[in-house]
């Protein structure tokens, strides 16, 4: 039975947390735990979700959860999984799951993730991508897109902000032959839920990279988080794809992209972008999609 708003569990396993209003990352954790259930054991490195979920004695996770060293999310997941098995106390249907931000995954935790995939440990790793180190005050990560202003890549009249593009984690984990990898966005919740459900039932290392807009870091009203999560997919700056059994699948191929300019102009982090910068971003998007379409057999349009 597919999980959706009607069929999903009434349990709220991530509740009372101190994330900002309209937090995309919090929604990733909440929805994932809805699918994975109370026996999931979660591990989170330094980042928004650990800072806002574990405010002793206010502990927002109702399932077992712990904080890991920043670089060690995937290693701790491996250890939890092996420990539960060795002690014979791993419940049926228990998923050992990590929730790390883009900085904790693409920068600081990358080698630990690569190691877990290398060993094919039976863990599920979520990267909730808000495109910068939001917990510490919006510093650039290697998932910060071109043109975004952060405190370490400040934009101004003569500088577009971040001058590098997003690191392609999805391709990196696929290159290691991971059993299952996917990209998703909280703007497409049913696609996300379907992927979590699929990942839950696959053994070996699974990786899901979820776009999680951040009202504070991106600069938009807290009520627009879902709209931004949908908009970034519709204009082609993010994509919904899967890698399974060595095959790439594009879950959504918008034949015509929505306006990149409209999407970018709705966020204050892009306020210094010139029209020429936006043309550059569109050209880069088209290159990315050319590669994606070559790589993927298209599932639907």
């Amino acid at each position: 039975m597919s999980v959706n708003a009607r069929t999903m569990s009434d349990d709220e396993l991530f509740y009372g947390h101190k994330a900002c209003p309209g937090c995309g990352g919090a929604l990733v954790v909440r929805q994932a735990l809805k699918v994975l259930g109370k026996d999931a054991v979660a591990a989170l490195p330094a980042g928004c979700m650990s800072a806002t979920g574990f405010n002793f004695p206010q502990l927002a996770f109702a399932n077992n959860a712990m904080i890991t060293p920043f670089a060690a999310t995937a290693s701790v997941l491996s250890g939890i999984e092996a420990g539960l098995r060795a002690q014979g106390i791993k419940p049926d249907g228990c998923t050992v799951v990590g929730f790390a931000g883009d900085g904790g995954t693409a920068d600081i935790g990358l080698q630990a993730l690569s190691g877990a995939i290398d060993r094919n440990d039976d863990v599920l790793y979520f990267c909730y991508d808000n495109e910068a180190y939001m917990n510490t005050g919006i510093q650039r990560s290697s998932e910060t897109p071109f043109g975004a202003s952060t405190t370490t890549t400040p934009a101004g009249p003569s500088h577009p902000g971040c001058v590098t593009g997003k690191k392609d984690l999805f391709a990196m984990v696929a290159a290691q032959g991971i059993p299952y990898a996917a990209t998703a966005s909280i703007g497409y919740p049913n696609d996300l839920l379907k992927k979590v459900e699929k990942a839950r039932d696959i053994r070996g290392t699974r990786f899901i990279h979820v776009m999680a807009p951040c009202p504070v870091g991106w600069g938009f009203p807290s009520s627009d988080t879902i709209a931004l999560g949908k908009g970034i997919v519709d204009c082609g700056l993010w994509y919904l794809a899967e890698y399974e059994d060595g095959r790439f699948t594009l879950n959504r191929d918008p034949g015509r992209f929505a306006s990149v300019a409209d999407h970018l102009r709705s966020q204050s982090r892009y306020r210094a972008l010139t029209d020429a910068d936006i043309v550059t971003i569109e050209a880069h998007r088209d290159q990315v999609w050319q590669r994606l379409r070559q790589r993927c057999s298209c599932e639907s349009s």
Binding site: A5, F14, A19, P21, G22, C23, A26, L27, R30, I186
Partner: peptide
Amino acid sequence: CFNCYLLCPDG
């Protein structure tokens, strides 16, 4: 329809 229920970041 439970759209709001599905999308509330705070549950």
